[in-house]
Nucleic acid binder design. Structure first.
Length: 578
RNA sequence: CGGGGAUUAGCACAGCCUGGUAGUGUGCUCGGUUUGGGACCGAGAGGUCGCAGGUUCGAAUCCUGCAUCCCCGACCA
């Protein structure tokens, strides 16, 4: 490929709208252009990189027995009705109608379609296991597209689905994917973590995310400094020092706390209590398919609620904090004076019911202080299990950096922003049951297919490589993701002998199988050097001053080191460097 | 959806407060000189000032509405 004929529209200035490193560089290095919010055109350079990444994905998926499909992106409503997700997906789903007025959608994922194929074509356990995958465009009407390619409304996903007759088979498919994903991301040169995660709207268990640590990410993950523990903060736990309580009063005692509304204020109040001796009381509305319920979540005063944990613990589709009026009409008090002690009675008197869930760290605690559900009053001497009708105990607490690792003796947790590039989970029979996809087992009895679902965001791999590999001069592609392995820079194309030497090296490298770009543009050397660095090609051969002696320069993009090489040494030097 | 910011030439910006018909840098085209780290001289092309309405003799500038984009919070690859 010759640069003079290859479309790489680099920009001198950073685009104003870009914030994250990958966003700026993707635009500036001429890889993408924006069409709308979360909608991007991929220019030839990006397309070339994405194809290289997809090739790696294909090789590894085929390596675990995956079979490549290509399913339609435009789906009729009916399939999505069957799984119940026509409604569940809400505004995130792009919907349209055909000329007859029939409802259609643009697929956000393909559990439904693959399951519908499995339902009609898989009849016997003898046909299992199956791993089906595709690399295809997904459409999601995200509430807030952002950060260039990191969160968009149209993107490429490798999605795969495993079908087995039992959970033992699912375990095998799941582990195979886990290992394949490890290899894919490693080959792309990414530094990544496997973390335990919440499965969210997809449903399922054993949810494992593949995360890349970067400030451009949207998730927080906790990792241990000492062992391999890693979890999304939505799931992460930590070991905390137990607190020993002295025996308190025989029953809670109400006391006046005028104008005290926060934990902090109560700590400093005369007759108050340390934050870890207080009970924090938070009110939520939990939404389920058919019903809604009021929920009181209790935590230690110095702890923060992790909302996803609460939602998962309740098994709710969604939760939201109660508003002030709602709180008052439920408990006759305002935020700041709320507590669990007489909450059920208060709610009942108001004709309502409330579910009380307590954080595990409150179990067995005595002599605590909490709101009295009466403005300006608190209770002291509260013994949690004696005085509060807690319906369920769960881990609800958000972990903090520096806390002890739950998995090893001496590690401390570190919390980092990170970006999700892959997600695997065990669906079980969620879709096969709702869509009635069964096979006959060895006993001739119909059993629902046991499924797994596995996704990789292809563009996110590309963007993550940039996030993790760039400097002030531009992108630094890893070996496997580089659009070209080497650029041959002819410093002055008007000097025929330099252009000739460059072409000779270019032909030689091409014949040896290198993906090489010849910079034959009629530009000054500095422009070409800067562009090569911005675009991020791992190696540059410079044809210049010493070319007449048969000596060229080989520059490593990452280290900026330059060595003199002779014609015959070039290929070997590139081959042996990393 | 809530909160904040922006919209003027391909890109980055000034002009707006205090109305008088648009400018800078870069990029682009042509000619010449240069040629190893984004050259120099000269000559050019390029803008319905996001859209619609209003105020005014006159609107990029003031007023109203709308649209789009970016950033911060609820989702996910």
């Amino acid at each position: 490929m010759r640069w003079s004929n290859f479309f790489i529209p680099t920009l001198r200035d950073n685009p104003a709208e870009a914030e994250s490193a990958s966003h700026k560089l993707l635009i500036r290095a001429g890889l993408i252009r924006q069409l709308g919010a979360g909608i991007y055109s991929y220019l030839p350079l990006a397309q070339k990189i994405l194809q290289k990444i997809e090739l790696i994905v294909r090789e590894e998926m085929n390596g675990i027995g995956g079979q490549e499909f290509y399913l339609p992106a435009i789906n009729p409503r009916e399939v999505w009705e069957e799984s119940g997700r026509w409604d569940v997906m809400g505004d995130n789903m792009f919907r349209l109608q055909d000329r007859k007025g029939a409802d259609l959608c643009l697929a956000m994922t393909h559990e439904e379609i693959f399951t519908s194929i499995a339902r009609s074509e898989l009849n016997s356990y003898k046909q299992l296991p199956q791993i089906w995958y595709q690399i295809q465009t997904k459409f999601r009407d995200e509430p807030r597209p952002k950060s260039g390619l990191l969160r968009v409304r149209q993107f490429t996903m490798k999605d795969s689905y495993s079908f087995d007759v039992d959970t033992a088979g699912l375990d095998i498919a799941f582990d195979a994917h886990k290992e394949a994903y490890r290899r894919i991301f490693s080959r792309c040169g990414l530094d990544f973590e496997l973390v335990e995660a919440s499965s969210g709207a997809m449903g399922g268990s054993a949810s494992t995310e593949f995360m890349v640590k970067t400030d451009a990410g949207e998730d927080l993950i906790a990792t241990c400094s000492n062992c391999d523990y890693a979890a999304n903060v939505e799931k992460a736990t930590s070991r905390i020092e137990p607190i020993s309580d002295e025996n308190g009063l025989d029953s809670p005692e109400e006391f006046a706390t005028p104008n005290i509304r926060t934990i902090e204020q109560l700590v400093n109040f005369d007759g108050g209590a340390d934050a870890n001796r207080q009970i924090k009381t938070l009110l939520f509305l939990a939404k389920y398919d058919e019903e809604e319920k009021f929920v009181i979540a209790l935590l230690r005063g110095d702890h923060q609620l992790q909302e996803t944990k609460l939602q998962d613990a309740l098994g709710a589709n969604d939760i939201r904090p109660l508003q002030d009026e709602e709180i008052f009409s439920l408990l006759d008090a305002h935020a700041g004076s709320l507590g669990g002690v007489n909450a059920k009675e208060k709610a009942k008197a108001n004709g309502k019911e409330v579910f009380i869930i307590g954080d595990a760290a409150l179990k067995n605690r005595k002599n605590m202080t909490t709101g009295a559900n009466k403005d300006g009053f608190h209770f002291r001497g509260v013994e949690v299990e004696r005085d509060i009708a807690v319906d369920d105990w769960k881990d609800l607490r958000a972990v903090n950096a520096g806390e002890n690792c739950p998995n090893c003796e001496s590690g401390a947790l570190e919390i980092d922003k990170s970006l999700e590039i892959g997600h695997i989970f065990k669906l079980g029979t969620k879709y096969s049951e709702s869509m009635d996809a069964t096979v006959l087992n060895e006993n001739g009895k119909p059993v629902p297919l046991v499924m797994g679902s596995y996704g990789i965001g292809v563009e996110r791999i590309m963007a993550s490589v940039i996030e993790q590999n760039h400097d002030d001069d531009g992108i630094i592609w890893t070996k496997a993701t580089a659009p070209f392995e080497v650029v041959v820079t002819v410093t002055n194309v008007k000097k025929a002998e330099l252009l000739e030497a460059g072409e000779k090296i270019y032909d030689e490298l091409k014949s040896k199988g290198f993906d090489v770009l010849l910079d034959d543009r009629n530009e000054r050397a500095g422009v070409k050097f800067n562009d090569a660095e911005l675009v991020g090609i791992p190696f540059r051969i410079t044809i210049g001053k010493t070319a007449d002696q048969g000596i060229f320069e080989l520059t490593n993009r990452r280290t900026k080191e330059t060595v003199d090489v002779k014609f015959d040494e070039i290929a070997g030097k590139i081959e042996n460097s990393d």
